[in-house]
Design a protein around this nucleic acid. Structure first.
Length: 458
RNA sequence: GGCUGGAUGGCAGAGUGGUUAUGCAGCGGCCUGCAAAGCCGUGGACGCCGGUUCGACUCCGGCUCCAGCCUCCA
């Protein structure tokens, strides 16, 4: 089995061969912490969480770094509005981000560096770029010189003419070339700033990623991931400064970009009022449902979120948990990638084709559902698949009975069920059905099976 | 306007030059006091127009619509 990754630059899938097979290094662009995470923020986190699980199955050591951008003018604006320090804003939304991703079953990255904690590294990298003739100081700014890098445009597939035709913003006076981008910019007294050889200021957008990659992973790295909206200019610029810092050598071997999330075929935007916050979705469904909904679309495709999205994912997981209720997992202590059915392995390796993997997983569930007893191999196959998809991790009882959802307490429910049982015994089905309807109106569903009555939350 | 990507049945969504994707929803059946769950079966699709081909949803071209980006905005 060989992992394949789609490379936009080559417009095809290519085999993944790490720079060092003993240590795979991966960096993913994390959030700018100025607002509550929405489903678009969650998608790359879930996708790369899952993909890293697969990488770990193949390589002895994988280091996954995902940053927190806590220097940004949006944070500054928010802090000013509230009259607080930028740390307050950054801390608040970093906490939100962590909470929401944990609910989605995302494991923590190995390192989660913050821009504010890497000013010396950024300043050192900018200085090196100036020394090597790829950046210049001008009007208290430091700019990267795009003409100094021949391969500019290769990452996003935009040649000079394409970029020039698209440009529509007036060129600032401090730039030597219209495409040059800012590495360091001056701060006013009221803006957050750090001392530097070029005066008190703050970094431009792109430099933090390169500096933090160099520090925590060492350049070059195997995989750099992020949302498709970051392809240009962010990743193009990162690549330019990163390659030039390395004096022309490679910066990133494989780029991976996830598609955007659209709501009812429209982009999420504040003006449309259709921003789907992760925490709002978590009010409607367990985190694994949201996770599965995100993985049901291939990571590179745009994801169409709509009314039935959660319902559909919930049905699949309900089924999976019903199966888990029947499967005896007590004696199964260890399982791993080799226990994952080969067709699911193949799908996950084929440019992380989760929708196909999920289809095969459903087939596996159905096959096991039909059997009275299960072999150790079958149970391992199920548990291993669940781990790599990041589903089926909840205790079964809590899946079907969620305390926070209950309008009725357990005692009342069981009292009503006892009454219903009595009614059924004397064949007073009208009374029995009345109780069932009453429970259903409270979100309690019941199932009579094998002479017993089970109940669960909707 | 430019660049990039997308368009598959009611909905979501893989894949393929000729043969059932799959799930949700629907319909029929088994089971059940009735349901639910489970099982069995079933209808339904490849944006539009051309071209290549014995044959295209799949390859090529044009068009339409949608999305992302177009430099200090993540």
């Amino acid at each position: 089995m060989q992992i394949q990754i789609y490379q936009r630059a080559h417009k095809q899938k290519v085999p993944f061969t790490p720079l060092n097979k003993d240590h795979v290094r991966l960096y993913v662009c994390g959030p700018t912490v100025y607002s509550t995470p929405h489903i678009g923020n969650a998608r790359p986190a879930v996708v790369f969480d899952g993909f890293v699980r697969v990488l770990r199955a193949f390589y002895p050591k994988v280091t996954y770094v995902r940053n927190i951008t806590d220097v940004d003018d949006k944070i500054n604006t928010k802090a000013q509005q509230e009259g607080v320090d930028i740390d307050v804003i950054a801390e608040r939304y970093t906490k939100c981000y962590h909470e929401d991703l944990a609910a989605l079953g995302c494991l923590s990255p190995d390192v989660e560096p913050r821009a504010t904690e890497h000013m010396p590294e950024m300043i050192a990298m900018i200085s090196a770029l100036i020394e090597r003739g790829h950046a210049y100081e001008s009007e208290n700014h430091v700019c990267f010189s795009v003409p100094s890098f021949d391969d500019y445009g290769a990452v996003s597939g935009r040649d000079h003419n394409a970029r020039k035709a698209g440009a529509r913003v007036a060129v600032e006076t401090y730039k030597q070339h219209e495409e040059d981008f800012v590495l360091w910019k001056p701060s006013t007294e009221t803006e957050p700033g750090w001392d530097s050889p070029w005066g008190r200021g703050r970094p431009g957008w792109h430099i933090e990623c390169s500096a933090m990659i160099e520090k925590h992973l060492g350049l070059p790295i195997d995989i750099h991931g992020g949302g498709g909206d970051l392809l240009f200019p962010h990743h193009e610029n990162e690549n330019a400064q990163g390659c030039c810092f390395r004096e022309g050598k490679e910066y990133v071997k494989y780029w991976m970009h996830n598609g955007m999330v659209n709501v009812d075929d429209e982009k999420m935007s504040k003006s449309l009022g259709n921003i789907l916050l992760v925490r709002d979705l978590l009010q409607k469904a367990p985190g694994e449902v949201v996770r599965l909904a995100l993985l049901q679309t291939h990571y590179r495709q745009p994801l169409r979120w709509h009314e039935d999205t959660l319902h559909s994912a919930k049905q699949i997981l309900d089924r999976a948990y019903r199966l888990l209720e029947q499967v005896d997992t007590r004696d199964i202590k260890e399982w791993g990638w080799s226990d994952v059915p080969s067709e699911i392995q193949a799908a996950l390796c084929d440019d992380y084709n989760t929708p196909l993997a999920i289809t095969h997983w459903q087939a596996l569930c159905r096959a096991l559902q039909k059997k009275e007893t299960h072999t150790a191999e079958e149970v391992k196959a199920l548990l291993a698949t669940h781990h790599f998809l990041g589903v089926g991790q909840r205790p079964i009882r809590s899946w079907f009975r969620q305390a926070e959802q209950g309008k009725l307490d357990v005692e009342s429910i069981e009292k009503l069920l006892a009454e219903r049982d009595q009614a059924r015994q004397i064949r007073d089905f009208e009374a029995a059905d009345r109780i069932r309807d009453q429970l259903e109106s409270q979100g309690i569903l019941i199932e009579d099976s094998n002479g017993k009555t089970k109940w669960r939350h909707q």
